[in-house]
Simulated scan of single mutants.
Amino acid sequence: MPAIRPSRIARTAPEHCGSFSAAACGNTRTQIPGFKAGGTSGIRSAVTGTPHILLVEDDREISQLVARYLRGNDLRVSLAGDGREMDRLLADSRIDLIILDLMLPGEDGLSICRRLRAQSGVPILMLTAKGEEIDRIVGLEIGADDYLAKPFNPRELLARIRAVLRRGAGTEREEDGARRLAFAGFVLDPDLRQLVNPDGAQVALTAAEFDLLHAMGLRPGRVLSRDQLLDLTQGRAPGPFERSIDVLISRIRQKIERDPRNPEMIKTIRSGGYVFTPAVTRA
């Protein structure tokens, strides 16, 4: 199956609205009916915060053009060139939808889709070569939420993203993450959104504190930067004087550490961020 190239996209311009040419991506909002300058795409209401899209595509030029178009329509976009880069970004960020190319170096898109479905409920929109009906059918059978054949119209890609996000609004994105986490005698329950201490008493946590502790509990032993924690818990980039993560960490330490001034469970890593040190089991 030939991988699509930018020149192939350019040749389809009369039929596909100038799909992903530099000129087409430079001013995207006014090219889509129903979008007004200064307005929003309407996607934001489907998920908390600005939707975060992960595009897994090995052609860097296509990736950059697609990313520029989507960012021009109120979407956050991260790029991965293969399955390993995708895994790293999924571990470090909260992703609302994955656009997954079928033809990738190393692990192919069908294998990645099958693996993702065994681990997570994150929506997947698969990109396939035009006319490869069998691959599209297999992709849907193993768990892809939708597919789009190359070359494609950027308006159609945006419309399909919106539709998939609407269908997935209010559902659990990480099914495995809904399991209870046990550490150092504490039990963190995502369904009840509560923390129980070793004595069996409930620990009062704000919603922001719970989300941060849960994000760290899912990634024990890993150094997480403030930016990563902010993205994982609130789905947004930090401001120039962002200190909210530090404040939340301090409050959580007051509630779970034996000595908050000398913390053992949430350690600060100089110039790195924070690491959650206890062994975590899931039940």
Rank of each mutant, 00 (worst) to 15 (best):
R60E: 09
E209Y: 00
L90R: 14
G177A: 08
R71C: 05
R251Q: 11
D82A: 01
T268P: 04
R88E: 12
D101K: 00
L110C: 02
L158F: 07
G200Y: 12
I137F: 12
R94H: 10
R114M: 12
P260A: 07
L218Q: 14
T48V: 13
R8Q: 08
L70I: 06
R117M: 07
S21N: 04
M1N: 08
D145V: 06
G221K: 10
N153D: 14
D87K: 15
F276G: 00
T206S: 15
A184Q: 15
I142L: 10
A118V: 11
R155Y: 09
A3K: 14
D211Y: 06
L230S: 01
A204Q: 13
T128I: 11
S19H: 12
L224C: 04
V247T: 10
I9K: 03
N153W: 08
L213Q: 08
E85T: 11
A283R: 15
S244P: 01
R71W: 03
I95S: 01
A159D: 02
S63W: 02
G34D: 00
D189P: 02
P154I: 06
A237G: 09
T171H: 13
R222M: 05
Q64R: 15
Q119T: 05
V196W: 03
R219M: 10
E156I: 15
A3L: 13
L127E: 02
F276I: 02
V47W: 12
S45M: 11
E15T: 06
K255F: 01
Q31A: 10
P6R: 02
T28E: 08
P154Q: 13
C113H: 00
P123D: 10
A182F: 08
I266T: 01
T171N: 14
E57M: 04
R44W: 10
A237Y: 10
R76D: 05
E257S: 04
I4G: 01
M126C: 11
E15D: 08
P263L: 03
V138F: 08
G139H: 02
I112Q: 04
G185T: 14
A184K: 14
N197K: 06
I266K: 00
R166A: 15
V196C: 04
G221L: 07
I95L: 03
A208I: 03
L116F: 03
I134E: 15
R282L: 07
P238N: 14
L100M: 13
L148I: 15
I269Y: 06
A129Y: 05
I32S: 04
